[in-house]
Design a protein around this nucleic acid. Structure first.
Lengths: 197, 197, 197, 197
DNA sequence: GATGAATGAGGCTTCATTCAT
DNA sequence: TATGAATGAAGCCTCATTCAT
């Protein structure tokens, strides 16, 4: 049996890129930086990846695909109120920040980058599908009388992403509050803000 | 009388930088890009500015100084409830996004950059002072019984910045809702979320 | 068997730098000049060297190390009078000028440069060690009664360096006198000048 | 009467250039450096001087003209032995180093520069005339039986320049020995070396 | 799979010089 | 006399990428 600690070179490069993109941004990280951290050399990089941008694409892809998949699960769950679904979506976001901080941060930070580049079309679509799910749940909740009728689904869904997105800048695992607690604080605020009382 | 539309070269460079940094980020914008847009040549840039980073500094400085000044005015106003102060602070943020979108966006987008660079010490301090004002108003409001006792001032103040900060990514002046309306939506959500009923 | 004339790129760059620094000085030579002469392109330079200054350092280092090593050999040789040692040190200098004219010239010409730059600390130390050896031999010769008691070791050692150093400006291999002859002329002058008769 | 402390701008620029060229070399000094030190601006520079090189020319010219004039005076003095003339020429050099250290240093340091540039033809000629005077005095001394017949006039004259030239690198006014003392040490060495005993 | 040498475009910055005022 | 804005070439260096081995 192969030593399970062995990490293959492709993964090493991906992990180095992940942490460096998070720390210094995509533009602020050079291919050399990545390879120094991964303790590999030029040749390997272009054996595994087509370009630096390709790396960014893969990082986005794996993240957004999981996020979209999980959010669709929530959206499609039966016998669940929209309030409950919204709660789960918020928790999904904070969970993702907790589990995939680097991915999440890069996703938020390079939001503009992927807006401008044709190659990221697919990413953009999935990103929008995810946002639409939040918007849809709020709309459904309004129709069902769970949320106030004057709630603006789009603006609120932007807000939910913004709250968590900003967490990529300040949240630390060793901070005074756990992700669960932070999650609850924002969730309370959001639900109190839009629920029909 | 001189034509008031005449813009001097330094201002032209600043304005070009402002819009390009906003669009492509600081790292993604070259000095050449800026000078092409400003219709000037290499030399002029370094006649007016010490470095590319100097430009970023000035852009941050002018923005954060105004924001801090205005927020202090709000903080120090007499005969004003903390709820009212918080409302005004939220409005100040959305007003700033409306009036100084480029500055605001750059500020949010390069948040990490200024965290890492020694030269931005002063900016960092003012930024923190601004955040502290929001936190303080919430704390005061809790003590005064205006806000729920279990409100977390720091987390909520992060949230307020995050909500507006994310606006830099999606808000368009020609969108369906005015800044005033968006402002009100978020303000309602926040206040409903933390007010004592 | 590989053609022994084949010179690798790093050596080609070093050699080009050597001859250009000698001809036009360090400041007067651009990295581009070096690469044009070496028939290589920008990137290669920074693949092999950290900076232009790094090159200057290496050139100095290889030269001063040899010079210091050889002078220490002379200094430590047994059963040798100080007069004989001094003769050998003078010959060492002219030999070096003959064999490593470019290195020697750069060393003399950029004497000030290496005095001002922290990175050249090690070079500075070895340079001073070399000068000290000459001074020490003269001092020992005075104590041994070989040289006049009123001889100033430091001033004379400066003079010895100066005589050869200036040779970097006028000496040509195709001149009327050989290095050996020039060496002898100066050595006679120095020894006649300081010997006890 | 005008305040005799008032230094006009042209002189201020010249003096700044003098001290900066001495410290950092001609290539290592920018026009801006000079103007910062002189507390003047770009315009003035090109009002008074045609170019940066023009400055270097003037610095060389004033120095070499004086040196040549004084050496010709010595050469032409009647009833003076060649030994005495040579002594005076050596003293002239050390006197010049003492009085015009910056000029002298620049002259020695940029020796190569003026060798390569057509505009410095006149300087080159005067420089060579000065060297020829030393050579001629030695030749005359040999013919007159004052100096050894096997003395090489050219090599010795190079040596005399080299000894003083190297002084530009190490001589300090606050050093342990006065210029007079250093002058005497080298003069003794030279004369002992070449005199007929 | 992986190396390391090499490329060439482009990055930020400095420079000597010009010129209208 | 002197200023200060502006130029454009050139300087040092970094970058993403390629390719023979």
């Amino acid at each position: 049996m192969r030593n399970s600690n062995t990490v293959d070179s492709k993964t090493k490069i991906l992990n180095s890129a992940l942490s460096l993109f998070e720390k210094n941004g995509y533009s602020g990280t050079s291919v050399n930086d990545i390879l120094n951290e991964a303790e590999l050399t030029k040749g390997s990089f272009y054996y595994f990846f087509q370009s630096k941008e390709d790396l960014l694409y893969l990082i986005h892809e794996s993240f957004i695909e999981n996020l979209l998949y999980d959010s669709q699960e929530i959206f499609n769950s039966k016998n669940t109120t929209n309030k409950e679904k919204l709660s789960q979506l918020v928790s999904l976001l904070w969970d993702s920040l907790y589990k995939y901080k680097d991915n999440f941060t890069i996703f938020i930070q390079e939001y503009k980058y992927i807006a401008a580049d044709d190659k990221f079309q697919v990413i953009r679509e999935k990103r929008d599908q995810f946002a639409n799910i939040i918007t849809q749940v709020i709309e459904d909740g309004i129709k069902a009388g769970e949320f106030k009728s004057n709630t603006d689904p789009k603006i609120i869904s932007f807000g939910i992403v913004g709250l968590t997105g900003w967490g990529t800048q300040w949240y630390r695992k060793d901070g005074p509050l756990s992700v669960k607690e932070i999650n609850k604080i924002y969730l309370d605020m959001i639900l109190n803000g839009i629920e029909n009382h």
